[in-house]
Design a protein around this nucleic acid. Structure first.
Ligand SMILES: [Mn+2]
Ligand SMILES: [Mn+2]
Length: 327
DNA sequence: GGGGCCT
DNA sequence: AGGCCCCAACGCCAC
DNA sequence: GTGGCG
């Protein structure tokens, strides 16, 4: 994420500066100095378009970010230019953006639409989130099953593996919520009760992934070395302490302006990650709403429920709805 | 994209 | 005034 | 302890 290919810098018309009034009172005005600067040259998507996207999806995106440590990738000159991670507050941060520490980092909190607009103005394209929330981000409320295809394995292998994951979760009586990563893979979110530290969550997911690997050794892998990987990598390490991942509805800095998009299990066999972009996702939300929103209402499980070694036994109450998690 | 720091 | 630097780290894993 | 990994 660091190549310095000179972005189209020429007589390009970046447009005249504008101010986005993101609240009626004018207390959250966000200036865009170069609203027509092309961030995704191939698609003609400019900074103002990206800001409009994030403001449109804010009602479904902000609930995921609530009280959660977030980090960002910034591409001030678009996806053809330089990039870097941002965890600590951006220099010159508006006073109305709150911050809160987790570990050695003082994270910017994303709690209102104006913050999304400000971040885009500052060059942010991608929004990443931790899997736990304050006051104790070290005890995650979300587990993720992260499916990363190793070329030449691709989306079709991910689709088949996702179906295996769904079957395994059904057997356990656990509900999983899939989303495209926006790049090549799939993320399945599972609501937790926060009773285990990140390491315990990782261990439970690892053991579930090991059983999948035993069932389909030709399709999936747990091999740590990229050079020796074949098939779909079951990346349980994504649950380790301090890790973050692309949030639902985050844009990805790749050609096509893809979006990490929640889908239903029924859709999995019929969609491809490129279907979901800055241009298409707002309309999809208007049609269908957020297929993952139910995660805010199901009761979180203890992560050990995912571990076949500790769950194999008799009474295994299915996950019930209700008793929301109040996120 | 922009603040800090150096020249 | 202009130019360069900086914007993240850390836990986990196999060796 | 080191280097690869995401
Ligand atoms: Mn992934
Ligand atoms: Mn991964």
């Amino acid at each position: 994420m660091n190549a310095a290919t000179p972005p189209q810098r020429p007589p390009a018309d970046y447009g005249d500066p504008v101010v986005l009034r993101t609240d009626p009172a004018g207390a959250r005005d966000v200036p865009l100095k170069h609203p027509r600067k092309l961030l995704f040259p191939g698609e003609g998507i400019a900074r103002a378009d990206l800001a409009a996207y994030y403001l449109e999806v804010a009602p479904v995106l902000l609930p995921y970010l609530h009280e959660r440590p977030c980090s960002f990738t910034r591409w001030p000159d678009g996806i053809a230019g330089r990039s870097f991670f941002q965890k600590n507050p951006i220099a010159g941060l508006p006073p109305w953006v709150p911050t809160r520490p987790f570990g050695n980092v003082n994270h910017m909190r994303v709690e209102e639409p104006a913050t999304l607009a400000y971040l885009v103005a500052a060059g942010v394209i991608e929004v990443h989130m931790a899997l736990g929330t304050w006051p104790d981000p070290g005890h995650p409320d979300i587990a993720v099953i992260d499916l990363d295809p190793t070329p030449p394995a691709g989306w079709d292998a991910v689709q088949r593996t996702g179906r295996m994951v769904k079957r395994a979760l059904d057997v356990l009586g656990v509900e999983g919520f899939p989303k495209t990563s926006g790049a090549t893979g799939l993320h399945v979110f599972i609501a937790l009760d926060r009773s285990l530290p990140a390491g315990g969550v990782r261990d439970a997911v690892r053991n579930l992934m090991r059983t999948l690997q035993r069932v389909a050794p030709a399709e999936v892998t747990l091999e740590y070395r990229v050079s020796r990987r074949r098939g779909v990598f079951l990346d349980y390490g994504q649950n380790a302490r301090g890790r973050t991942m692309a949030a639902p509805y985050s844009v990805r800095p790749r050609p096509g302006a893809p979006v990490s998009t929640p889908i239903t299990w029924d859709e999995l066999a019929h969609v491809t990650p490129a279907d979901f972009t800055v241009r298409t996702v707002p309309a999809r939300l208007g049609r269908l709403g957020d297929p993952m929103a139910e995660i805010f209402r199901v009761r979180g499980i203890r992560a050990t429920r995912l571990d076949p070694a500790t769950t194999k036994k008799p009474d295994m109450p299915a996950q019930t709805s209700g008793g929301g998690r109040g996120i």
